[in-house]
Nucleic acid binder design. Structure first.
Length: 441
RNA sequence: GGAGGAGUGGCCGAGCGGUCGAAGGCGGCGGAUUUGAAAUCCGUUGUAGGGGCGACUCUACCGGGGGUUCGAAUCCCUCCUCCUCCGCCA
């Protein structure tokens, strides 16, 4: 959420910045400006009425004879004053509700250094790591490889849960588990993150804190979705969302808190299953496990002082990238253009891993710096030093990494002519010594 | 699911319907004392919004919301959360 005061006082700049990311509703911003002005005037008048009432009320307390005519007269006058205050308060609640609705639907402002652009085609390649693996044969895609090795089962997943689900089996399941362990181990013991195992069902306030709500409700799975179910008395207390990413519960760790400046930066890593409805992605990546309703991910979350944000983003991106490097997976880093960034981000890097069967780089991690955008929604603050006033934190997060897509990349990049897949060396200990998933004869 | 109990400032804990933003303690910060530290003493210490260049000032906030009242931390209603016991359960 943007700062109301900042937006009201800098309308032209805000319009220009939002335009860069394709937000063209200038009228909405003008309306916000008018409402903000109205609110300010209203507050001034209501407060002076309240002051008048407070002073008069105190005088009332000093009148000993509560039945006297003067007391009665004053009381009647104050009753009218009280009504007037109430009307003003009601109006204020209305205005602030409208303002909040607008603010909750405004995306973050891209940093000035974020490149212009409308879509992912305009993203800027920052660096490429490793070489494209070359095969002496036509590389197959992970669906083919996984099905043949008996480690991925899409048919049975569809039977049980529908489309866009996958079942991992045998060494495939083990690989998934090994990756989770490996990533968490690296981030905790080498990168200094504190490990967190959070709930995967969260309240709407948490979803609002990190900006999945209110704008992207269609993308999330919600418990108590239909009205009939919701109407049941038993359903109360279960209005929860399945997390689309561990970012939600982990970032909200410090919602409504004031942390000590001396504790910053804070760094957390955690694994969760992630659930996404993939609304509006019909026909996109329907094959395989690139885009499924449920996947596993290890997430990195950092909290810092505003002035640390820029550096922290580089650090966090490096931590995510280190996983790809240790796994020996060819990939590149791109900086997202203004038009391709997520709603809450003010600057983002994507890590894209090479998928030979698609002859393309595909996103495997997105690392973002949100400024105080999420912190304002969450009321997550820090005290710069013990005497100072609290300030909004800056938040960052990134996948470290999406495990499903990592499995895909390993299968595709490490496939052998005989149909086997080699296990990256760093994972072998986590695989109980298994060095390759053998071909089925 | 059943039965009880409780929600006050960073924490603990008082609080007659009216000078209560709220006693006291702890913690934090500043200072005195000390060679240094501990102990002790003194002072200070919430958040948000509005106005003012500023010193400053006004308003709101005692789990959330609503109500009664001239006036609510204090009375009423309601919701939420937490704790204890019983039942069920991985």
């Amino acid at each position: 959420m943007l700062d109301l005061r900042y937006v009201s006082e800098n309308l032209p700049e805000v319009k220009a910045a939002l335009l860069r990311r394709g937000f063209t509703d200038a009228e909405l911003l003008d309306r916000l400006g008018r409402l903000s002005e109205e609110r300010r005037n209203l507050i001034a008048s209501v407060e002076s009425l309240r002051q008048e009432r407070n002073e008069a009320s105190q005088a009332m307390a000093k009148i000993s004879d509560k039945t006297s005519e003067t007391f009665q007269a004053k009381r009647d006058r104050l009753r009218a004053l009280g009504d007037e205050i109430k009307r003003g308060e009601t109006k204020q609640v209305e205005l602030e509700g409208e303002l909040e609705t607008i603010l909750l639907n405004l995306p973050n402002l891209p940093r000035p250094d974020v490149p212009d652009g409308r879509s992912e085609r305009d993203n800027v390649e920052v660096r490429v790591w490793g070489d494209q693996p070359s095969f002496g044969f036509q590389p197959r895609d992970h669906v083919e490889i996984g099905s043949q090795l008996g480690i991925l089962d899409f048919e049975r997943a569809a039977k049980i849960s529908g489309s866009r689900f996958v079942i991992l089996k045998g060494l495939g399941s083990r690989l998934n588990r090994a990756l989770m362990q490996f990533m968490l181990d690296v981030h905790t013991s080498e990168h200094g993150y504190e490990e967190v195992w959070p709930p995967v069902l969260v309240k709407d306030s948490a979803m609002r804190g990190t900006s999945q709500l209110p704008k992207f409700a269609k993308d999330a799975f919600r418990i108590a979705k239909d009205e009939e179910w919701e109407a049941q008395a038993d359903a109360r207390g279960h209005d929860l969302y399945l997390v689309p990413t561990a970012e939600v519960p982990i970032t909200n760790l410090h919602a409504d808190e004031i942390v000590a400046g001396s504790d910053l930066p804070l760094a957390y890593t955690g694994y969760t299953a992630c659930f996404r409805s993939e609304a509006g992605s019909y026909g996109k990546d329907t094959r395989g496990m690139i885009r499924v309703h449920q996947f596993d991910k290890v997430e990195l979350v950092r909290f810092c002082r505003p002035e640390q944000g820029e550096t922290q983003l580089e650090i966090l991106t490096g931590h995510a990238e280190a996983i790809l490097q240790k796994l020996g997976l060819h990939h590149r880093v791109v900086e997202l253009c203004a038009g391709d960034m997520g709603f809450a981000a003010q600057k983002s890097y994507d890590l894209e891993v090479w998928l030979p069967a698609q002859n393309a780089y595909r996103e495997i991690s997105s690392c973002s710096w949100f400024g105080d955008f999420q912190a304002r929604r969450m009321k997550a603050r820090f005290r710069p030093d013990p005497k100072a006033k609290p300030q909004l934190l800056h938040t960052l997060n990134g996948s470290g990494l999406a495990i499903g897509r990592t499995v895909v990349a390993i299968l595709e990049q490490n496939q052998q002519a005989d149909g086997a897949v080699t296990i990256p060396e760093v994972l072998v200990p986590y695989m109980g010594g298994v060095e390759r998933i053998p071909p089925v004869s």
